[in-house]
């Protein structure tokens, strides 16, 4: 009986630890909440998750990353070069960027970074690797574009002819 209870407890513990590993977003603060309530989080350790967008900007003091949260708000993260070695794909039109988990200290107005609202990262982990996004050509839109081009040409000719004939025929329209 005791053995069975021990096994059950061990299984439950394993399951819970696995669950927490599988869902690192649970402990994360939404980026928009972090910005809206920056005063409450100022100087505190926070965890955020989001997509890396734009560029990885290497500077003397480290690397600047911009992490886009679910609700369309992004925040700057200052990270050590070594901590972002496996981060490589930043999101743009043709890429979905690396989905990252950032653990660090939130600063409402970071004194040593010129008053930036940012997170100074302690740990950056990649939850999901980024990938290229294929944008396929819409044949319907292309066809519509070609049809409209034809219409433009025809209508342009009509306007030209009409304008010419009015000018030749003495286009003084009575008021």
């Amino acid at each position: 009986m005791i053995t069975r209870v021990c096994i059950l407890i061990a299984a439950a513990f394993l399951a819970s630890s696995r669950l927490s590993a599988a869902a690192p977003e649970d402990e994360a603060v939404a980026v928009d909440t972090l910005i809206a309530q920056a005063r409450n989080y100022d100087g505190k350790e926070v965890v955020i998750v989001g997509e890396l967008v734009g560029d990885i900007m290497a500077r003397k003091e480290g690397c600047w990353l911009n992490i886009l949260g679910k609700n369309g708000v992004a925040i700057g993260v200052m990270a050590d070069r070594n901590s972002i070695r496996d981060v490589s794909i930043a999101g743009d039109y043709s890429h979905h960027g690396d989905y990252l988990r950032v653990k660090g200290t939130m600063y409402r107005f970071a004194a040593n970074l010129g008053g930036e609202t940012c997170i100074i990262a302690k740990e950056v982990t990649t939850i999901r690797k980024g990938y290229p996004v294929a944008h396929s050509l819409s044949w319907k839109r292309l066809a519509a574009g070609i049809v409209l081009t034809g219409a433009s040409i025809i209508f342009g000719i009509i306007v030209r002819i009409q304008a010419g004939s009015t000018a030749v025929g003495g286009g003084n329209v009575p008021r």
Binding site: H135, S136, L137, S138, R141, L142, A144, G145, I146, L148, T149, A151, S152, F155, G156
Partner: peptide, 15 residues
């Protein structure tokens, strides 16, 4: 993939 969008828009504006 963006080119048809500009083709449609150009022609609409021109017409």
């Amino acid at each position: 993939d963006q080119i048809p969008d500009y083709l449609i828009s150009f022609n609409a504006c021109f017409i």
